[in-house]
Design a protein around this nucleic acid. Structure first.
Lengths: 204, 204
DNA sequence: TTCGAAGAGTACTGGACAGTCTAGTACTGG
DNA sequence: CCAGTACTAGACTGTCCAGTACTCTTCGAA
């Protein structure tokens, strides 16, 4: 007896294969036959576990959204008890850019933008759970830091969005169009300069 | 005898129809039959004018890139002889957000991201001619303004990118995922706040 | 050891679609 | 008015793919 039933193992194999292929080749660039082949499973088994291609896609993306959300949320918490804003914001920005711009999430972002017409709810959910949730959580932190006199953010949500995009926009937008490589040093440069600009506008 | 030969008219009708459909339904969501039907032209005529679907797509996007580039470039020139930086930057930002976020360009952006794997050169060209060119032109202006003591931009290209994304990122990223509407007033708010943040960091 | 469920393998259906072919019609330049 | 070219209409080929059907095999629980 293994740690998982045979069914559960097959189910996971299908999920893994589908995730790999959907992220690599997009929704319509991936066929159910390919998924079955990569999962080393018959097509029947795929259809026993997932009603159809759309359902399979939605389940995978939804699971990944939850995972990505957990990662980013964990990072924001670290700011809560900051005394040294400049240093802590810088560390946060460096971690943030590294998390959000990992190849896996970049690819996911592109795939979702590509299918946003066909799966509008999925796209909306992705935005709300990713950037959207990130912004509101960060805004709450900024509000608290403003109360403690370490920042000055009359519109905390706007400040959070400014911060987020100052950190991410430059490399993120390039990565949407070409799979250029960025070094860790470049990420740190973007992160640090973003913090500098942010503090010039919102620091005390 | 009309102002255009029959051939030229058909050619344009095909371009128009293809542009409409490609932007509305994406590359693989559009069939050559649909294009021919919308252009009120036979499929043969389509293939007489364009070697295949890929060529047709590339020609359309390339033409649109050129047009979008002209629009944004024209806008940047207005900054050249500024005396009142705050006012002129604000006006520039307001025009910039209105141009770049027009529905047509948003849709184009999404379509290109969707096919970036299949047409890597096209995606790279789009970025280079759009945001890329915008950044370098703006950077040149910032450099000049720094020379004249109106700004302080040690890295003008970085400053240009910060400015660009401060203005555009918030609505742009939402529009990638859902076709939410923004009012002119919201655009102005984003533009004005972007200028405020920018000048706090890069003003004199 | 046996039985029922799950799975493998593979063939099949039906529909979409790029691109070609053909036979006949309309336009245009000379 | 007459070629020759462009265009039309629609049938056709080949391919891809989602989803189904069917038969035979394997697993695992009692």
């Amino acid at each position: 007896m293994s740690s998982q039933s045979r069914s559960a193992r097959k189910h996971d194999a299908i999920m893994d294969a589908a995730r790999t292929l959907f992220l690599r080749n997009g929704y319509s660039g991936t066929s159910m036959d390919e998924i079955a082949a990569l999962a080393a499973v018959s097509k029947q088994t795929v259809y026993k576990n997932f009603a159809d291609k759309e359902r399979l896609f939605i389940e995978i993306i939804t699971a990944d959204i939850a995972q990505a959300e957990a990662q980013t949320q964990a990072n924001v918490q670290a700011l809560a008890s900051s005394e040294d804003i400049a240093t802590d914001l810088r560390d946060f920005a460096r971690r943030h850019i590294t998390i959000v711009l990992q190849p896996h999430l970049i690819q996911m972002r592109r795939v979702i933008i590509a299918v946003a017409d066909r799966f509008p709810d999925l796209a909306t959910t992705w935005y709300a759970s990713g950037p959207g949730r990130s912004h509101t959580t960060l805004a709450a932190q900024f509000e608290e830091l403003t109360r403690r006199g370490l920042l000055r953010t009359p519109d905390p949500l706007l400040a959070a969005q400014h911060f987020n995009w100052l950190v991410l926009s430059i490399p993120l937008n390039q990565l949407m169009f070409s799979p250029e490589e960025f070094t860790q040093a470049q990420f740190e440069y973007y992160a640090d300069e973003a913090v500098r600009v942010f503090l010039a506008a919102y620091g005390t």
